[in-house]
Design a protein around this nucleic acid. Sequence first.
DNA 1: CTGAATCCACCAAGATACTG
DNA 2: CAGTATCTTGGTGGATTCAG
Lengths: 141, 141
Amino acid sequence: MDDTNTAVRVPQHGQTECRASLETLARIGDKWTVMVVGALAHGPIRYNQIRRVVEGISQRMLTLTLKGLEQDGLVSRTVYPTKPPRVDYELTDLGRTLIVPLQAIHAWTVAHQPAMLAAREKFAEREQQAASLQASVTASK
Amino acid sequence: MDDTNTAVRVPQHGQTECRASLETLARIGDKWTVMVVGALAHGPIRYNQIRRVVEGISQRMLTLTLKGLEQDGLVSRTVYPTKPPRVDYELTDLGRTLIVPLQAIHAWTVAHQPAMLAAREKFAEREQQAASLQASVTASK
DNA sequence: CTGAATCCACCAAGATACTG
DNA sequence: CAGTATCTTGGTGGATTCAG
């Protein structure tokens, strides 16, 4: 062990585990999926209802998102062959389990988002100052 | 209460809350950010060490990701003006709070990812059959 | 070693129009 | 109402090169 600077080197939670979580995030963490799952969280809902609730989603994206969720067994699709046609979407049992991690995200947001935004502003200020300094230095050349 | 199909209609957790979580996800939920945070979770680490650990990340993306995290106060950057230069990155207290929701994601992945993949395969099979049927119908026209 | 800068390819996603 | 089909584009990220 001649580690120069790999101090503690806790072997727990390697890259492999990150990879797995990553795939999950890629599937359920994108913009529209989160919104759609949110819309479905209250119970069965029709196609155009989702469209109104999510607001801003294009027909294309809604269809694609729903198809993806259905494909992964997170959402069930029920067609009522009435006139006019009606299609209900609903979270499956598996889909409902998503609510837990999603709430974890939400909890973090409530607790720490403000601090994050504050840090961001501070950083922006410093950038301003740095830019000013740089400008004066450049000008005096 | 003349709800035709808006059954329970739980007013809890509106779109507003989803929006907030969404911003968080957009910031910390992207591919490289998750991996980098994972690499930083063990303690201070140098630029090129991250590059090796994350494996696959380009110089550009690593720099951009780190800059973003630093900007949001999630990661601290320490420069040692030695020769050659050395820069350490480390999660801030704020950054460490990310580990909680990230572990929630990980827990979900371990528990439900297999079921999700299974569902995906099943769906693919059905698609195959549907395609075959469609083909025979089309052919018989 | 740690970046910054430039160029470029690709694809996700929006808009639009059409169908069952 | 609930989709599908096609076209177009803007941004994301990779490769490469230069700099401190």
